[in-house]
Every structure is written in C-alpha cells, then in structure tokens.
Design a binder for these strands. Sequence first.
DNA 1: AGAGCTAGTGTAAAAATTACACTAAATCAG
DNA 2: CTGATTTAGTGTAATTTTTACACTAGCTCT
Lengths: 245, 245
Amino acid sequence: MKNFDTYFKSAFTVDNVIFGFDESDLKILLIKRQEEPYIDHWGLPGYFVLPDEDLNTAARRVLKQLAGLDNVYLEQVKSFGAVNRHPFGRVITVAYYSLVKIADFSPQPDNDVAKEVRWFSVADISKLDLAFDHEEMADVCFETLKRQVRVRPIGFELLPPKFTLTELQHLYEAILETDLDKRNFRKKILSMNLLIDLDEMQAGVAHRPAKLYQFDYEKYQEFLQEGFSFELKESKRKERPVVTD
Amino acid sequence: MKNFDTYFKSAFTVDNVIFGFDESDLKILLIKRQEEPYIDHWGLPGYFVLPDEDLNTAARRVLKQLAGLDNVYLEQVKSFGAVNRHPFGRVITVAYYSLVKIADFSPQPDNDVAKEVRWFSVADISKLDLAFDHEEMADVCFETLKRQVRVRPIGFELLPPKFTLTELQHLYEAILETDLDKRNFRKKILSMNLLIDLDEMQAGVAHRPAKLYQFDYEKYQEFLQEGFSFELKESKRKERPVVTD
DNA sequence: AGAGCTAGTGTAAAAATTACACTAAATCAG
DNA sequence: CTGATTTAGTGTAATTTTTACACTAGCTCT
C-alpha cells in the first residue's frame, strides 16, 4: 500500500477573469493585492477553495465577496499548475471567466483581500506586471471568450438590459478585435430572432436616437440546448491597427 | 496573518481520456483498477500529480507508463472538483484527452495500477459504471473532441500514417455521430490541401483499391497558427439512430 | 465470366455571405 | 430658426459556399 499522505499537501485556488464592457472598451476587473505573496501587485480576484466547497461555488463566492455580484455568467476555462507558480507551496488554480454588466458592479471595499478594485482595458493588462501567472490566465480567458462569443449568444451578458444595435456591434468589435459591417451585422443579428424590439428610443443624445432592444432569454435557452451557431465574420473594408503593446 | 496551512491538505490528479479509432469505431482506453478506491472497477487512466511535476508532464507520464505512448496529441479539457468525488480526501482532477493511433499502443502489463487495459467503444462507456466521476469526464471530453474536430485538423492523429479518404470519412462520422456525404466530404477535405496524395494504392482488398493519402504536417502548422476553420456539416440524407443506451 | 464490393467523380440549385452609399432624425451653435 | 454635426437606419446585386444527388471503374472471389 502506498503512502498517499505525500500527495495531500497541495492547495488549490480559483481565479476569476471578470469581463465588463464600457464605452466601446472591453475591460477586466483587477484587485490590488492586500496579502502576500505579490502584495501591492495587481492581480485577478481569486482565493483558496475552501475544504468543503466545490470549484464553481468557490468561483461564485469570490465574485460575490469581492464585487457584490450574483447570478453572473460564469465558465471554467483552464487549470494552471506549473510547479513553482506559487511561492507558498504547490498550488494549482482553476481559471474562470465571467461576464458582468458594469453598472451592476458594486465594489466591496472592506474586504481584507483587496486594497483596491478597478477596471482595466484588456489592451492595458500586459503593462501591469500582474501577480503570479495571471497575465497568461487573462490571455487564455480572452481567447476563450473570443472563440465562444462566435458560437453562443453570450455577448448580451455584458450589456445593460436595454441596448442599441450599435452598442451591440461595438461590443462584438471589441471582443473580436475587428470591424464589422453595419448592415450585415444588423441583418445577421436580427435574423436570429434573439432580440425583442422595445419600441422605445434612446433619449438625450445629440443625434438621431436609436431603437432600444432587449435580449430574449427564452429563445436563448432554446438555442443553448440545440447547440447553435452564431458565426460573425469580419468586414474586409477597414483594418484595425494591431495593438502590440 | 491567516493560517494557510488549512488549505494545503488537498491532492490533485490527472485523468486521461485516450481516444483511438478502429474499424469505424471510436474507442476509449480504460483500465481495470488495481487499487482502492474503486478496486476492480473500470476507470480512466490517471494518477496523482507528483509534488515536482507540472500538470501536462503528469498527463504525459500517465500515458507513457500505462500505455507506452509518447508524443501524443494531448489537450487539457476541464477540472473536476466536487467536494466528495474522492473517498480518501479532497482531490480535484484535471481531465485531458489524447488522440492515439491504436497500432502504436503497447499496454504495459507490469504496472501496479492497472490489472487490465482495454479499448471500449464510446457508445458502451455508460454501461460500465466507471469509477469516480469518470463517466462524466469521458462525456465532457467526447463533446470537446466533437467540437474541436470541426475547427482543427486533429482527426489525423487517430489514423495510421497512410489512410484512404473513406477511412478518414468514417473517422469523422464516428466522432461527429452523423453521416457525411461522400462527394462533399472529399471536395472539402481535398480543397484544404492538407493531404499528400501518395500515388499508392490499398492492397489486398476484395474490391477496387483506394488511393492512399498522408497528412501534411507542414501545412497543419501553418493552419494552427492562423487559427483556421474546418467546418464539416452533416448530410441531410440519412439519419443515424440515436444511441440511447 | 459474372457477382459483389467499394472507389471515384461533376453539376446545378439553393443559401449564405459579402460589398457598398445614401437619407432620416435628433442636438447644438450661431 | 437655420444650418452643421452626428449617428441611425435601410436594400440589393455579385460572389461564394453549401447542398443534393447517381452512375461508372476496378479489384477479388467463386
């Protein structure tokens, strides 16, 4: 009989890549760490999984404690387990991404894990020298989001309940890092019948107001089941500059 | 300062869903467990991750020790961490899938983990009452394979170096659980220029011999980089019976 | 020599995708 | 109140991709 005790000396954590969308910009929520290791570094919100807690439960707890967020779209992405990724011992972490309406977000400042909580543009993450291997985790989650958003109608999780088609298009452009053709985008989106036309208009804008739409959660459920396709192809007209830094 | 020691009492394992393809049938390699818990049950090949071992390294070690397999296509799929999934304590496991040419497989019988090693058809897995949550893991990995095979040219990893187009089609039909149109399949596959026509023929078959092809690993590399699409749609002519049990 | 098998091939119709430019409706400044 | 500014909203034709579909070719075995 083996001595299994040698294996029961590790820990695991969950880390959350929380995406939000604001002003045509895709953002990630980061915390300034209050604890060692990497104290005062920016990093992903995450913590040890408690002994009597499932992985998903732990990920949701972190979302709740740190950002006051409930009922959020959450998906496991990948586990990271390099031998020396954590200075305190052997720790593997499970990365999740979640999609959040920024307006719903209410930071909990009295948390003893984070000194500060702030949204950062995805493009700026690489400048921050994140704790642990969190930059790689953010990258992998962003790539995963990019892939999944083509196949599932999850983009709506990032928008307020009422939105315009242009806002929706900007969201997809931010996630896919490309430009989309306005007419083709509208044609495609509307043809899926996932939007409810609210017969309501934008107000207080200095230009022709746009119609407001709502996401149709019932149809969403149907589609989720019969695993459906949501392909969006890029326009060939304009080319965005590649963000290198 | 917190007492972090309470967290360092868990263990983690890797489990491998090893896919092979034989006689138009997609198979999974299972072991008959030699050890508690679940002794004498069939289960996925897997083991504890050693203290000084990365996750991927551990998954490859399991492949090597158990099946004598090297240089295999391997991909992390998902982690499973339900609180009571392991009777010995808190253990989360990282599921991998790998794609293997059955001919290369040489079981290592003198392993003290497995009493027996055997290929099972994917369709039969649910009858076996696998150890732990291994059935769910196998299901998730199969779904992942199904998704990925549409987007990456990985099917070839399951075939011998030289194969016919019909064999390739049967492989895709087994993975996608659907029938494909012969002419459309060939048109599509050949148009990707991922196959090298070997100017060689099948021999010893009691019918018109088919041409043999080889996978073009150089083009494969190019495609992997520029993240390419490999969509295969099903034929509407025939419908396979749904395997319910 | 013929039966039995699987290999291999082309085309036309339908559907999806793409490219593309002008008018409409609000605010704001003068 | 007029014109400038800004974004909303809309249709079509060309191209590409996908789909459906059936017969001949070439080997072995009896």
